[in-house]
Simulated assay, not measured.
Amino acid sequence: MHVGFLGLGQMGAAIAERLQASGTRLHVYDPNEVALAPFVVRGAVDEASPRAVADAAEIVFACLPDAAVSERVAEEVAQGGAVRIYVEMSTIGSPALGRIAGRMHDRGITVLDCPVSGGPKGARAGTLTVIVAGPPPARDTVRPLLQQIGRSVFEVGDQPGQAQLMKLVNNLINAANMATAFEALVLGAKGGLDPAQMVDVINVSTGRNSATQDKVPKSVLTGSFDYGASLATMLKDVVLGLAEAEARDVPMWVHGSVEQLWRFGAQQGLGRADFTALIKVLEGWAGVEVRARPPS
């Protein structure tokens, strides 16, 4: 079976590497020739456009930066002659996903809504969480490929858009965890507590969360700020999550404040920075850094 892959950025490339390593015959497209080169060297077919990928592959994956790009690419893919299943891995929100699914349905193409969680490092390690929604026959067809990508594959429904909502629920919690952990750690550092010891205490206590257990030790205490996702991407997902809440008349008092902090970070020029760099905004206000102290 020939499989297409559109979008070889940080996340897309890592996912496509997993598929290619498993022996999948890939047809790839990305406007960045540098991103394409390693895949072509390993035997992938470099196609000239999304339409060309859809003319060559029955299953096409897309991992793209935002809803506007996703919808534009989907318009091209819908004209393809071979594609029968379109796997949208981008986090774009359920309204955009619904428009794509409707367009594909008109052309006899089934859409699987399939965002992932775990970042590029998780993708390369094969430990992603894969969230998928769509018609069961298409899920059955694509499931072996998804199992090559992720350790946990959750099938959350038959309707495209449900997986988008699940991903955004997760990312709203993730964004809030990071914001509150960063704020509290800055407070402790300002009061003279050892940052690394604070994290050790928290991680065996009730305040622990994914930020304190993973992101802070790896990318904040070390000062590397290289966890693997941009601040702008997190802000995008928070905004999409709040839009889902507004559409359903769900009040989001806490996450409204969380969105303001992430937006302020982007306005301070950190949009392209790693999302762990958000703590620098809080550190700047307090005049302190949350970093591991050198050994005495």
Rank of each mutant, 00 (worst) to 15 (best):
I100W: 01
A232V: 08
V45K: 07
S49C: 11
A163H: 04
D249E: 12
V201E: 06
V288S: 09
A101F: 01
G192F: 11
P65K: 13
F264K: 07
A189G: 12
V204H: 14
D249Y: 07
L146M: 10
V204K: 14
N32Q: 12
H2G: 06
I279K: 02
V40A: 09
F225E: 09
A232Q: 15
G157A: 13
A37T: 15
P65E: 12
G256L: 05
T212S: 13
G207S: 09
D249V: 05
G108N: 12
A273L: 05
F5C: 03
G108R: 07
D113H: 02
D106P: 00
R42Q: 13
V83K: 00
G271F: 06
Q164S: 15
A37W: 15
I173E: 00
D200P: 15
G43D: 05
L36C: 13
L146G: 02
V73C: 10
L97E: 11
G134R: 01
V220F: 02
K218H: 04
G122V: 02
D66E: 10
C63F: 12
R139E: 11
A56L: 08
V216H: 00
I15H: 09
P50Y: 14
G102H: 08
E88W: 01
E259R: 15
V60E: 02
N32P: 09
A138M: 02
L240D: 00
V45N: 04
A175D: 03
A48M: 06
G192K: 09
A125T: 13
I131R: 00
P251D: 11
M166C: 11
G161L: 00
A48W: 03
A247Q: 13
L145M: 11
L187W: 13
L261G: 07
N209M: 07
G23C: 02
R84A: 10
A179F: 06
E244R: 01
L8N: 06
